[in-house]
Each structure stands twice: as structure tokens, then as C-alpha cells.
């Protein structure tokens, strides 16, 4: 067990635990905050896996923007600050499908990889990733920017009552 393994284990446990709390807690705002913890742990995982750019982008966008948006939405929809009792639907289909998918995937991956070892590759720096993005993956990159533009316009159209389709 190298140090990388230990870190991965620890951060993984934190991520899974925080994720469990996200889907199980009865406090709406706390769910958002546990999501921050989970995403932060995952950013740490990325760093261990030498995916530096991805890790910082994760922190910037996910923790910095997405979670903030989610918390905004929680606030704007008048979420109660304390515990609320009616947050959950019946649990058995969720447990069934969730456990099935999670454990199934885990079994699949364990069966595939067992306790094998790999060497950590070269760090995924901004320069290296940039090379790949702007050479091999430039078309998806451009399409994604169009997609972002569409999402932006769509969000504005949805939010403002004076623009949009006929009522």
C-alpha cells in the first residue's frame, strides 16, 4: 500500500460518506453543504490521480458554481432551515435500484481489476490537456461552447416572463 493508495482510500471514504449524507439528510441546506464536502474529496482524488487541471476545474466549477447555484435554488424555493419531514418518497424502489446499480458496478469493477497495480502516469497539466483539447478534441470543444450558449439563452428565456413562447 503506497501513500497514494492510503490517500485514495481516505478521500474515497470521505466522498462516499458525504454523498450518503447528501441523499439521506433531512436538512435541505445541510445536503448542499455535504455535497461541497463530497465534491472537495473528489477533487482531492483527482489530484492524487495526477489530474491536476481536472481537480482545479472541479473545484472552480462544481464547488464554486454548481453548488452555489444549488444553494441559491434551495433558498429561492423557501426551503426550511431546520429539518423537514416530507423530503423523502418511499424507499424500497430507490434502495433496490440504487443498491443494485452501485453494488453491481462495484462487483463488475472489482472483478475486472482485482488488486492490480498501475503506475501513475504523467501529470495532466494544463499544457498537456490543452494540447489534446485543441488538437484531437477541438470539434467537441466547439460544440460544447455552442451548447453552453444554448443553455445560457434557455435559462434566461425560462426565467424571464416577458420573453419566451406564447401563453
Amino acid at each position: 500500500m503506497t501513500g497514494a493508495d492510503v490517500l485514495l482510500l481516505a478521500l474515497g471514504a470521505v466522498a462516499v460518506g458525504a454523498g450518503a449524507l447528501v441523499v439521506a439528510t433531512r436538512h435541505l441546506v445541510r445536503a448542499g453543504l455535504w455535497l461541497v464536502v463530497c465534491l472537495g474529496a473528489l477533487a482531492g482524488d483527482y489530484l492524487v490521480l495526477t489530474a491536476e487541471l481536472v481537480a482545479w476545474v472541479q473545484v472552480l466549477i462544481y464547488v464554486g458554481a454548481v453548488v452555489v447555484l444549488l444553494l441559491f435554488a434551495v433558498m429561492l424555493t423557501r426551503a426550511p432551515i431546520g429539518p423537514s419531514d416530507d423530503l423523502d418518497r418511499p424507499g424500497w424502489p430507490a434502495a433496490l435500484v440504487g443498491a443494485g446499480s452501485g453494488l453491481g458496478l462495484a462487483v463488475l469493477l472489482v472483478h475486472a481489476f482485482r488488486w492490480s497495480r498501475v503506475d501513475l502516469p504523467a501529470a495532466g497539466t494544463a499544457e498537456r490537456l490543452g494540447e489534446q483539447v485543441f488538437r484531437a478534441w477541438v470539434l467537441p470543444f466547439e460544440v460544447l461552447s455552442v451548447l453552453l450558449l444554448a443553455a445560457l439563452v434557455g435559462a434566461i428565456v425560462l426565467s424571464r416572463p416577458d420573453i419566451g413562447g406564447r401563453r
Binding site: R89, P93, A94, L96, V97, G100, S101, G104, L105, L108
Partner: peptide, 20 residues
């Protein structure tokens, strides 16, 4: 919506199981 989501995810799980 909830039943639709359950259907989608359960279906995906079943297909994944079958493929596996």
C-alpha cells in the same frame, strides 16, 4: 416524474446486468 425516473434507472440497471 418520479415514476419515470425510477423506470429509466431501473431499466438501465437491468440492461447493464444483462450485458454483464
Amino acid at each position: 416524474l418520479p415514476r419515470a425516473a425510477a423506470g429509466v434507472l431501473a431499466g438501465a440497471l437491468l440492461i447493464g446486468l444483462a450485458v454483464a
